[in-house]
Computed example of a mutant assay.
Amino acid sequence: MMLPAPRTPGHYRIALVCLGNICRSPMAHVVLERQLAEAGLAGTVAVTSSGTGGWHEGNPMDERAAATLSGAGYDPTRHRARTFDQDWHDAHDLVLVMDLANLRDVGGAGERVRLFRDFDPVEPGGEVPDPYYGGDAGFQEVLRMVERTSTSLVTTLREELSPT
């Protein structure tokens, strides 16, 4: 899947969006940032995350999401929930949402707005299910989706952003 061109040459900004910014998008944020760093792209690609609702503004991520990440060797401690602002459309090269409701909430799909799992090699175009009202297994499932989708996205970023 092709990426939209960067708005600023040499830099790429990705926004990850879910409902409350305490489960899915912060998990994806933490995983993607680490994978970008490991791929040597941390100085080129910046990642932010937010929720379409502001209920959790300023709070850390859900304890279960944080525990799932910590158990897999990630550091979830820096996250603080933010609310998506429509100005982010112009400030980011790519907005990736977790589900179809989030997609509607940010104004619908477009060249720069897609589902996060459009990059999933197992189920392209699928939704990331919201684990909030479920148990630990839901958070583990989300982590597996986020890791493989992030790996695919990083591969795409490396291929398309590397100078030829």
Rank of each mutant, 00 (worst) to 15 (best):
Q140F: 10
L115E: 03
R144T: 10
T156M: 11
G135A: 09
R112L: 07
E111I: 09
P129K: 00
R7Q: 09
E147Q: 15
D87M: 13
R112H: 05
D62I: 11
L36R: 01
V142P: 01
V128I: 15
R82L: 06
A66D: 02
G135K: 07
G126T: 15
T155E: 10
A72H: 12
P121Q: 13
Q86W: 10
L161R: 06
G43A: 11
L69S: 05
L161G: 03
D120E: 03
A65Q: 06
A65N: 09
T83M: 04
M61I: 13
V106I: 14
T164C: 13
E111P: 15
R148W: 14
A46W: 01
E160A: 08
S150I: 06
A66W: 02
H29T: 11
N102Q: 03
L143M: 04
P9V: 05
E33Q: 14
A65W: 05
G20M: 09
V142Y: 00
T156N: 13
A66E: 02
A101E: 15
G71P: 12
N102C: 10
R144I: 07
G135Q: 01
P26M: 11
D85G: 13
L100C: 06
T151P: 01
Y12H: 02
M27W: 04
G71K: 03
T83E: 07
N59S: 14
L153P: 14
S162Q: 10
A81W: 09
G10W: 03
F139T: 07
T164Q: 12
Y133R: 12
L115F: 07
L3D: 10
R13F: 07
T155W: 04
H92L: 13
L36T: 07
F116I: 00
D93C: 06
V31Q: 04
P124Y: 00
L115W: 04
R148G: 00
E147R: 14
L19N: 06
A46D: 04
P26W: 14
E33F: 02
T155H: 10
L94E: 03
M2S: 15
E63F: 08
A28H: 02
H92C: 14
L19K: 06
A81V: 11
Q35L: 09
D75N: 10
L32D: 05
L36E: 11
E123C: 08
L153N: 12
Y132P: 11
T83P: 15
T44L: 15
G53L: 14
G73A: 08
T149G: 12
M2R: 15
A137P: 08
N102A: 02
H89C: 11
M1D: 03
V146C: 09
P124N: 03
R158D: 08
L19R: 09
E57G: 13
S50F: 00
V154T: 11
H92D: 05
F116K: 08
D93M: 08
A137H: 13
R112M: 05
S25P: 03
T156K: 10
R104K: 05
A39E: 08
R80D: 13
A37E: 09
E141K: 13
A28N: 03
R24G: 00
Q86T: 13
P131M: 01
D75P: 02
V31A: 06
H11A: 15
E141H: 11
G51W: 00
S70A: 14
Y74A: 00
P26Y: 13
G20A: 13
L153C: 12
P129T: 00
V122T: 07
H11L: 15
P9A: 14
E123W: 11
P9F: 00
R104C: 04
D90G: 14
A137F: 10
